[in-house]
Amino acid sequence: MSRFNFRGHFFQLFFALLAGLGLGLVYSWFLSPVTYVDATPAILRSDFKDQYRVVIAASYASTQNLDRARVRLQLLGDVDPVGELSAQAQRMLAAGESFEKARPLAQLATDLNQGFASLPSPTPFTILTPQDVSAISATETQTEETVIIEETVTPFPTILFEQTPITPVVIETATPRATFTPIPGPGAPFALVGRDTVCAPGTQAGLLQFMLMDSRRKQVAGIEIIVTWSRGEDRFFTGFKPELGNGYADFIMEKDTVYSVRIAAGGAFVSDIVAPACTDPNGVSYPGGLLLTFQQP
């Protein structure tokens, strides 16, 4: 009898403990959970992370401080920060946002990939007075109109993704100077210099790849490419996959569809592009890819 009572008492205690534990957990997890007040950027919601990246890229466009931008991106805890930047830039373009908005992201991705800043160091910061700010605010509306006009006149994105080497000033002696040879600027038209069939089983079928280079064979980012076919048109830019090259871009061709390619900045027009037929080792035919290489003269 007493043994039975002991056991019953033990179970009552056990269930009281269990019920208390349950109540404690409900209270600490649901009714009054730990409140976060010192969050890190790594646990931000994904849309805020996107915003954070935009601000990092915009800040970098101003300061050209690549190391700092890299550290700031690491705060977001992305496995592949460069890939995330490129992906976000592409998402922005796909959502219909202008290239001007996506460009800082693409440029930061490109610079992180190449390891140095593309643009020269910025001018030193100046002090703005309230009068300056009022003047700026007054002209902001006009600036938007100016941008539109500039874009109509010069649709070619003028940004250069190259680093200008700083060479020491050398005092010339009496050595005769070489004749000046004009070097084509960033606006020189691109010409098709290579058209290679890519037959590689396992790769994306019908992959149309582009590689754009300047006259020194350095890849150029930010060049708009227009692909047209009977049922539509697609526009995209080089440099949004920096892991494949700053001057790289690609497009997926459908089977039995004829495409035309034009470089938006008055470059070569290439017509009659179709996915080539390739054959694998077993004799099975599959749509291959094409690599078009353009270069400035």
């Binding site: 205690l13 056990f14 009281a16 403990l17 269990l18 019920a19 208390g20 534990l21 349950g22 109540l23 404690g24 957990l25 409900v26 209270y27 600490s28 997890w29 959970p33 730990v34």
Partner: peptide, 15 residues
Amino acid sequence: AAAVIGIALGLIYGW
């Protein structure tokens, strides 16, 4: 007392 101990344990675990 057992219930109070249980609640305390639950709070420690959850917080």
